[in-house]
Write a protein that binds this DNA or RNA. Sequence first.
RNA 1: GGGCGUGUAGCUCAGUUGGUUAGAGCGCGCCCCUGAUAAGGGCGAGGUCGCAGGUUCGAGUCCCGCCAUGCCCA
Length: 1028
Amino acid sequence: MGDATGGGAQAPAPQTDKKKPAKNRYRSTLNLPSTGFGMKANLVQNEPQSLKRWQKLGLYQKLREMGPSQPNGRFVFHDGPPYANGSIHLGHLLNKCLKDFVVRTRQMAGYDCPYVPGWDCHGLPIEHKVMTELVESGKIDKLNGLEEDTRRLAIRRECEKYANKFQKLQTGQMQRLLTVADYDNPYLTMHHAYEGAVIETLAGMVAQGLVFRALKPVHWSIANETALAEAELEYKDREDPSVYVDFEAADAGAVYDAFGLGVNAEGAEGGEDAEEASGGGEEDSGSGSADSAFESGRPMQTPSFMIWTTTPWTLPANMGIAVHPRFVYALVRMDGNVTVVARELVEKVAKIGGAEDVEVLAEVTGDKLVGLRYRHAFVEELPRFREDVRETAPEKVWTVLSAEYVTLEDGTGLVHTATGHGADDFNTGLREGLPVYCPVLEDGRYDDTVPRWLQGVGVFDANPMVVKRLRESGHLFHHHEYSHSYPHDWRSKTPVIFRATEQWFIGVEKQTKRDGKSLREMAMRAVEAGGGSVRFVPEWGRNRMRGMLENRPDWCISRQRAWGLPIPAFFTADGEVLLTSASVRAVAQVFREEGSDAWFKNDASHLLKHYRVDQDPDVPASVASSLRDAIDSVTKSGDILDVWFESGSSWNAVMRERSKSEQHPEGEDFPVELYLEGSDQHRGWFQSSLLPGLAVTGSPPYKTVLTHGFMVDRDGQKLAKSKGHTIESLFEHHGADVLRWWVASLPYEGDMKVDEEFFRLAGESYRKIRNTLRFMLSNVESKDSGTASASTPAPTSLDALVLGELDMLRERVVGAYLSYNFREAHGRLYDFCNDTLSSVYLAAIKDRLYCDASGNARRAQAEHTLSVLVDGLCKLLAPILCHTSDEAYRALLQVDQKDAETCIHLLAFNGETGVTPDEGWARVMEARDQALLALERIKESGLDNPLDAMLVLPDPDGTLGRFALEDLADLCGVSLVTLEAGDEGVRVEDLRERHPRCERSWKRGPDVRERSDGGMLSDRDAAAVGVQ
RNA sequence: GGGCGUGUAGCUCAGUUGGUUAGAGCGCGCCCCUGAUAAGGGCGAGGUCGCAGGUUCGAGUCCCGCCAUGCCCA
């Protein structure tokens, strides 16, 4: 076994080996395949060499030089910037391969396809990591001693180093993936010119009147003391106290009136009267605990409104209680307390609280409760609300409100509303005029507007304190620990809170100055079906985008961090704001010249050196005078921009910018042809690009949005990051071409299962392609085909058949490529190699390749066809198997190893071969199928080698008669074929007794006989050997 | 809880506007070849189309509900 090849020198040669030469006495007269194109790919060693060769060639640059002469013009794909953090993973692998497929297929289809790769460099993930390292190395204390701007500059220096490091690492990995892009000249969001262009984009939005500052609850990370974008949250399970709290009615009579209970039911409207009545009622309830006590048909107790919350710490900020206007609410007595709960939830609530004695006293719809007042459970007096830009109605605090979002899923059907701590709450408060009250500071501790016992306490520490307090004061109906999905800061993994803060926003409902349409209107129009200008692949991406645009809130673009682009706003000593289109542009110019570090190094007079306040029509007069009189008193904003705004400006910072520098007419590359990212980017980059694009230019930044799904494990579950295959190990075990071949096979629209075994399977599939190429190469390279030159093959020749199939393949594969259906292309290429080539054509022509004499026209024709096939197939494979296709192509042309100039990636897909196969081929292949079945069946009778058989094929309409019988025999793998006019079905005849077997070709036939050299040979083989 | 997807042989996937017996590759089984040989070829067995209803002469395909799962959001 193992020593059959290696041990030959020592061990005596086995007898069987000695016999071989006799059996193969004509072997040396054959034209057997041989090639330097190895069966083993050695991708791990050889791919880096291809990469070097392409770099020496300057492949990307060469392609750009060819650009202007491409027949189909420009096709601009715009790369979404991955975050410059960590190693690339399977998601990047998928994403980058798909992008590379797009660019390479378009390029080879005759388009000019620049591909500028980008990296997202600013932002919290890097800053967080850097801060962590600074803490671990102990350098943080030194930093914290610095003045704020200096401190930030120091952090930013570290962040920049970090981003550069990973941008380089990822570049190397992407190159190792064999993607072709302008890696020498990428865009980084921290480049000065990029920064300037982002701020100019912001200026465009300011000019449209879309940017404003407001108090608004945002997701707030206590750990990082910053507002977070939706994209910076992750939802994890968390245990919180679930509390059911009774808020006593301020006016018991009014509540009983609302429920139609007792004497005053008719005249329930009398507010003044009711208030007095309630005063008495409360005192009564304090002393009398008899649950049967009624007075005039009403309970003696003061009724309560029962709310449910899992964030007791927000209770100090309670501003109202929301009910659904159409739900039915019950006035219910539970173990002596009288309270209000949604009717449908009475039983559930009673059970949870363990109430034994439950009695519904009355029912009424929610709208009847609206306007009733209540008393806060532990806050005695309203705090003094800070003055606000919004008009508020503090007198409405602590009343029952109406809200449609109230559900009966959980809780009591009455919703605790804290305008400073929830989005729904905020919106309700906005509608009702409630103040936005947020007594929580940046570090998560209460300020001094809350009751004394809570002041300075952290909110999560406050939870048990609040619960305890409520229990002691008798307001707590029930409390238990509750596990639920809760948003966490994706970096620090700590729970976030909703906290109202002053932030910068881009308003999606605000009217643009251009035509009065809001961003939401413009966006919805851009992505609407039919008239919308944006195409979605797959089409359902449109609905997904629309759904998100329909209800997306205003875009909070400010962050309280160091590693990012400053929001170029200034404040006068009076607290007035300077943020006009012209002032922003002026700062943008400074950033272009000096980078955004300039913000932290300089004061207003330098940052505004390009600003002409007298020429700015938008600046408020008082701000203008402050600037003129005392520019030194003007302070800089401490906020930075949401990184999504930076990447969302890339259409401006990269595509328009480059159009200018490459001296294309302005705007030629805008909007770009294609954005291609994971489906999570419907809310991310697709939107963060769409909104600024629309605001600034009036049109969407892209014509087509293509999305792909995500990798899941073999059971369809979310991929655990920890057990992820590292890119390095994938390269090491499989090679880039195999990985690319695998990506091409994926139905990327949905979830894709990934498993080590799938890479192995892709490797096997790859090997079949490689072997097919190898076999063809091994038969064209021999080049002893003499002088016979190939002509256009006859329509009935095997060559016409296969070349016709090649044309069809090319049409379908290129069609699939251009419609981004790489999977279909992959499948068709694979099937072509296995079926059309390996099983049919290559099997059929072996005899003529091996046995026909050198110079034989039939053989020369086949050899020529092989070169056409390799050439055409390599080009079709090139966008996917970029190493292997180039390797095979170079083998075909027998290019010297040192030659870097010859490269398949500089070429285009071929045109048609010009060959038209005979229409009868379909009938031939049908006959072949039947013949193979017949041959299979005859095996049972002992005739199991098809070369021992003759086929009698029925040919009722004479179609088969047009074809060479030898070709038909080769196609079916038999020695002889005859035709008969009838329609009896295929017959198989045994030739073993009838004709001897040719020792050279192994075929049986009537012309096989003993020749002058003593061998049994057919006429063809005798002539080839040169014997009589 | 909401929006958008996905669920078809053991595995990975095709299944056009509803219409014969639901296809392919891999794997598996049997066989051939040993001049593509750590290759190549032939044949075959595998499916209650996630579950449950409905529309229809007819449903993998259309409608409703449920279950599982992915992304995004609450």
